[in-house]
Amino acid sequence: MSVDTVKQPNWFSRLAHPGQFLAWSRYLIWPLGIATALSFAIGLYFAFFNSPEDYQMGDMVRVMYVHVPNAWLSQLVYGVMAVSALGTLVWRHPLADVANKAAAPLGAVFTALALYTGALWGRPTWGTFWEWDGRMTSTLVLLLIYLGIIALWRAFDDQLKAGRIIAIVTLVGALNLPVIKFSVDWWNTLHQPASVFTASGPHMPISILTPLLVMMLAFTLLFALLQVVRMRTEILRRRAETLSRQAALGATK
């Protein structure tokens, strides 16, 4: 047992070394890609052909199968970024800031898709693309936070230094997200006592729940796949940068 506990960090830090990560993650891409494609195929089949129409919204209800997974990912990705920020600050992991940088644009895209599909859904349901509804508003604020973090990544010349600073911002954002959520809800009820949109979560029939869960799995796998690919790209990009520096050092005749 004692041998195991000593081995554990070694094993983990070895896998998390950028070079090692490049080596073993290569074998992850194809299985992940196939699993993603399969679950999308199943999920989309259920969503289009094997789930009921809504008695009010008709076929529009099927937007939900894209909307809900994206909304879920918009939060999950931020969670991943917050964990990687901890990794950067506490454990000083060489991979952690790569993970943060790779995840930020993905999170932004998923959040934007959640808002977009929400707007598509809102048009026939509310009669307008946008409503300052509590959930949509806090999702919009989340998107702005993502975009701010991306802008910060782009603004830094030195990406290693950027990692630690952005990790702090990410964590402050993570701590602040519940506050934002609470304040937006408070603001929202202040102005609109009767909510337009009530959640229909738990009392969902199984015929809707099944495709929804499959689609959530599919989108989560898609995120995992894209995250791995982006992390590999970022590591390779940093290597290329190092090589450029070395080329500059050795070039003067």
């Binding site: 010349d157 450029s244 520096r245 080329a247 500059a248 050092l249 070039a251 003067t252 005749k253």
Partner: peptide
């Protein structure tokens, strides 16, 4: 000026001597 081959590199990577060249 002896820095051929560096044309495609961003100038930020150059040393101060190379920048002067």
């Amino acid at each position: 000026v002896g820095i051929d081959g560096l044309g495609g590199l961003e100038a930020g990577y150059l040393s101060s001597g190379q920048l002067r060249r």
